[in-house]
């Protein structure tokens, strides 16, 4: 089966994350081995096709946004680091998806997907995203947009539509879940801080 190694990058990252997730608290050696084994599953035939070919046949190649978010997650799992997808990137993904996907399924005669085949509308949006990332001083937005542009320039996927390199239907769901978890954690932490502050205050008053 001919493989487009670049198209398989997304499935390889997905499988690496899935395999390393259960062992993310194991030793660094185990995590690296798990990552390599997971990524290899995308390329090794299992029965009639490799898992990568099955994933490509099911959902197609991943967007640059998905690749950047998966890579960030993988780096965190492997390195015990604190790197995480930035809020500006997550918010941008949700905002674009709300303005984009409903129209692609035929809600109106307007089809924004057509703009991805040519013209300056989508590149202008991408420049706007770069500006947002620059102003917010985050790296991942620039990585996302730069990678999408690079993959498009190279014709890495079979699509000639710039949207297919920029965004993927699961991206906004992932972004929404991550933002919701962070909001919950932030609320819990602030409650915890308030309780601690109240306890300290009452202890000071008693003494």
């Amino acid at each position: 089966m001919p493989m487009n190694a670049i198209e398989l990058l997304g499935p390889a990252l997905v499988l690496a994350v899935v395999v390393v997730l259960p062992v993310r608290r194991a030793s660094i050696g185990v995590r690296i081995v798990a990552t390599i084994a997971g990524a290899a599953l995308a390329f090794i035939p299992l029965g009639p096709a490799s898992l990568g070919a099955v994933l490509l046949g099911t959902v197609g190649p991943l967007s640059a946004a998905a690749i950047v978010m998966l890579a960030t997650l993988l780096v965190t799992f492997i390195s015990d680091g604190k790197s995480r997808t930035s809020c500006p990137m997550l918010v941008c993904l949700i905002a674009i998806s709300i303005a984009y996907y409903p129209f692609t399924i035929g809600l109106t005669r307007f089809d924004p997907y057509e703009f991805g085949y040519g013209g300056i509308a989508v590149p202008a949006l991408m420049l706007g995203l770069v500006m947002v990332g620059w102003i917010a001083r985050v790296y991942d937005v620039a990585c996302w947009v730069g990678l999408a542009a690079l993959l498009y320039i190279c014709g890495a996927y079979d699509s000639t539509n710039l949207w297919d390199y920029l965004i993927f239907p699961t991206d906004p769901f992932y972004a929404g879940i991550v933002l919701a978890i962070r909001a919950f954690q932030s609320r819990r932490d602030s409650r915890h801080d308030n309780r601690a502050a109240n306890f300290e205050n009452s202890a000071t008053t008693r003494s």
Binding site: P123, M126, L127, V130, M131, G133, W134, Y139, V141, A142, C143, V145, G146, A148, A149, L150, Y152, I153, L162
Partner: peptide, 12 residues
């Protein structure tokens, strides 16, 4: 990074 992404976007 922003400059590089901007340049790649202009080429795209």
């Amino acid at each position: 990074l922003a400059a590089l992404a901007g340049l790649l976007t202009l080429i795209a």
